Simulated assay, not measured.
Amino acid sequence: MFLRIVLLCLTVTLVGCSRSAVHQQEAFVFGTRVEVLVWGDDAERAQQAMGAVLREFDRLHKAFHAWKPSELTALNRMLAAGQRAQVSAELATMLNDAKALAATGDQLFNPALGKLVALWGFHDDQFSPRRPDPAALQALVSSAPNMADVHLDADGVASDNPDVQFDLGGYAKGYALDRAAAILRAEGVDNALINIGGNVMALGRKGDHPWQVGIQHPRAPQPIAVLALYDGEAIGTSGDYQRYFELDGRRFSHLIDPRSGQPASGTQAVTVLVSPQAGAGVLSDVASKPVFLAGDAWREMAHRYGVEMALRVDGDGRIAVTRALRARMKPFGGIEIDQVVD
């Protein structure tokens, strides 16, 4: 679903990544491959901590699934019926946070857009290439469900708009990164790398060096660039090349522009790197969506979220990068950067 980050110490394209003290566990959760790497000599502690992280990922996946039975789907049913719903303290906190983050980006980050995502067929493990019914699509665009329609208080969650249907796919992976970091630190692990389908967070270092990751090119089987990731930093990515279908010579991705109701065009991929801070995982996951949807205004949108390190591949494959990120990365395999911006 997201622009995949290549964890370079797991590929054969680079050398020098010692495996002697890297412990790894992986699983398939959130509809993608996830992996946890721990650097250290205590193998038993590493395995215990990684197992705890993967169990937490499984819990979050089941609790907040967008279309299989979950707390989230139960909430959506009640909102569709015009009812106020009580939710767990955890979900209430997530929705409050998501509402504030949506307002920052003029609702381009819009987890209330689940009906539109489903209409395009992306609420299915095996989606098929088809356009939605034009009348149903226009009705949802006109209804314009967004997080401003959502009200949260001590009495629960309510909506002014019966078309509000939550899909936390653009938030939950970042939330899971933050939860993983907290679990690892509580288990006494200070050096680790967490990868959830391209959403990545680093803890500490890999031995004497920072963790090295590569940003995958959206149209080529190689990274765009290699960069070092330091303690507490998180990468969030959005791309049109993982969860998509092709029809009549066009690519339709799951990244839907709420203004038009259409899968976004004009951008192939966006990567943002968020500095260490509380909620860095969530911010990295969320910010990549409005930056992707903003098109040529991507840099201004990144500024809104306080993101100084970002990269965009436009619809024609031209690569633009902020000056701050360009200073951190090494282009890979002859890939050229077309534009550096402040």
Results as ranks from 00 to 15, higher is better:
L255V: 15
G266I: 05
I235K: 11
G281A: 02
F166V: 10
A172M: 13
L203Q: 08
D163Q: 13
R251T: 14
Q165A: 13
K173N: 07
H254Y: 03
G214P: 08
A181D: 08
Q277P: 09
D257T: 00
D240R: 13
A158S: 15
V270I: 15
N146I: 07
G188R: 07
Q165E: 14
L273P: 04
V141H: 07
D160R: 04
I224T: 03
A186E: 14
R179E: 11
V141L: 02
L247H: 06
L152S: 09
L255G: 01
V282L: 06
Q165D: 09
D190F: 13
H254W: 01
Y171E: 04
G170P: 04
D248T: 09
V213C: 02
P263I: 02
I194C: 07
D155R: 06
V272C: 05
G239H: 07
S143A: 15
Y244R: 13
D257V: 09
R243P: 01
Q212N: 08
R251F: 10
Y244T: 11
T267N: 08
I215P: 01
P221L: 14
V213T: 05
R179I: 12
L152N: 11
G207Q: 00
A202S: 03
V274E: 05
R185N: 11
I196K: 10
L229S: 03
Q222S: 04
A158D: 07
A176V: 12
G279I: 01
A148G: 07
A202L: 07
A269E: 10
I194W: 03
A148H: 02
D153H: 08
A234Y: 09
Y244D: 14
V272I: 09
W211E: 05
T267Q: 04
G232D: 05
D248E: 11
R205F: 05
Y171R: 03
G156M: 08
L140E: 04
L177G: 12
K173C: 06
L193G: 03
K206T: 01
V274H: 03
D167I: 15
Q212G: 15
Y241F: 15
Y171Q: 05
A264W: 08
D231P: 05
L140R: 00
V270H: 12
D240T: 14
G239K: 03
A278N: 08
G207L: 01
A225I: 12
L273Q: 12
V274W: 06
D240P: 04
Q277D: 07
A220Q: 15
R243N: 10
V189R: 00
A158Y: 05
L227E: 04
V272T: 04
P218F: 08
Q242N: 15
A182S: 12
D160L: 15
V164Q: 02
S275D: 15
P276C: 10
P263W: 04
S253N: 01
Q212E: 15
R251A: 01
D155N: 06
E246M: 09
D248Q: 08
L184V: 04
H151F: 15
G239I: 02
G170N: 04
G197T: 08
G266W: 05
G156I: 02
A192I: 12
Q165W: 06
A269W: 05
R259C: 09
D178R: 09
D155Q: 14
